[in-house]
């Protein structure tokens, strides 16, 4: 589903002493099927932006369009329930939303609310638990007996089981160990490709943004600061530093290599092995000439 923001502003607690403008005049367009990363410093309005995507918040000004659904201050969105069925949101620390007696019931909670047939729920539950890389015999256990990482996966499975068309992820790997982070992100990437999803990822990790996204939006103080393809946006050191963001490590490394050896290696998302090969060529080439 296409996602379009048109001059969206959001004010928390309008007309009170605590009035706070979280978004102002944000516009962008996300074509169906793309993987977008939203990056920004704490308090830049990322999470507020995300809550507009399934109608948890309605913009104070402007319009949000998600597929055929339209969310604006003026009118109540019809059929918000079916919008929420199509937009799956994985919130920060999603393990905190678990509550059922068994893992299976918790995964099935979303689909059940959307009146999915019990047979179908069972099928989706099996699929979802496999997708997040947990063994099926966990299904009958209590979610509270699991480890933190497993709970996180169960919660994510609960969102995947709704078979969403848009997947919205708010720092889904925060607080996990490095290998777990990698596994979960790879899983989202697979889901994105296999199910033809539109994915919106809110993250602090420039590495993740570079690796997975094909479009990047950088937020600053509630406004859109930069937007574009990762290799255009994430190489601009000065611009990024102005919003307290760093270059991804690979790019930093390549910049250094360029300084040291006097020859740039263009980054095209090649793997570490390939990069090493190219670097060796540059280093050896440099030596033979010098």
């Amino acid at each position: 589903m296409d996602i379009t923001f048109k001059d969206v502003s959001y004010i928390y607690q309008a007309n009170t002493p605590f009035e706070h403008r979280a978004l102002s005049g944000v516009s962008f367009h996300i074509p169906s099927g793309s993987f977008v990363a939203v990056i920004g410093h704490t308090g830049s309005g990322k999470s507020t932006l995300l809550q507009h995507l399934n109608g948890l918040l309605r913009p104070t000004e402007g319009k949000v369009m998600i597929g055929d659904y339209q969310i604006s201050a003026a009118e109540k969105t019809k059929d918000i329930k079916s919008l929420r069925e199509k937009v799956g949101v994985v919130f920060q620390y999603p393990e905190h939303q678990l509550f059922e007696e068994t893992v299976a019931k918790d995964i099935g909670f979303g689909p059940l609310n959307f009146n999915v047939e019990p047979k179908e729920i069972e099928r989706r539950t099996g699929q979802a638990i496999k997708a997040v890389g947990l063994p099926e015999d966990l299904l009958q256990r209590s979610p509270f007996d699991l480890s933190g990482g497993q709970m996180r996966r169960v919660a994510i499975a609960g969102v995947l089981a709704m078979n969403p068309e848009v997947l919205v992820l708010d720092e889904p790997t925060a607080g996990l160990d490095p290998s777990g982070q990698r596994e979960i992100m790879d899983m989202f990437s697979r889901q994105h490709k296999n199910n033809n999803l539109t994915t919106v990822l809110v993250t602090h990790s420039m590495e993740d943004a570079l690796r997975y996204a094909d479009h990047i939006i950088i937020m600053k103080d509630g406004e859109k600061y930069m937007e574009g393809a990762p290799l255009e946006v994430l190489v601009n050191k000065e611009e990024l530093q102005r919003v307290q963001l760093d270059l991804p490590e690979v790019i930093q490394f390549l910049h250094q290599a360029e300084k040291q050896f006097g020859k740039a290696i263009p980054y095209r998302k090649q793997g570490i092995a390939q990069l090493a090969k190219e670097l060796t060529a540059v280093v050896k080439g440099g030596e033979s000439h010098g």
Partner: peptide, 16 residues
């Protein structure tokens, strides 16, 4: 604050 977060998460799973 936590209550708000939990409520939003369950609403996203369409708690009626």
């Amino acid at each position: 604050r936590e209550a708000k977060i939990v409520m939003e998460a369950q609403q996203a799973r369409c708690l009626d």
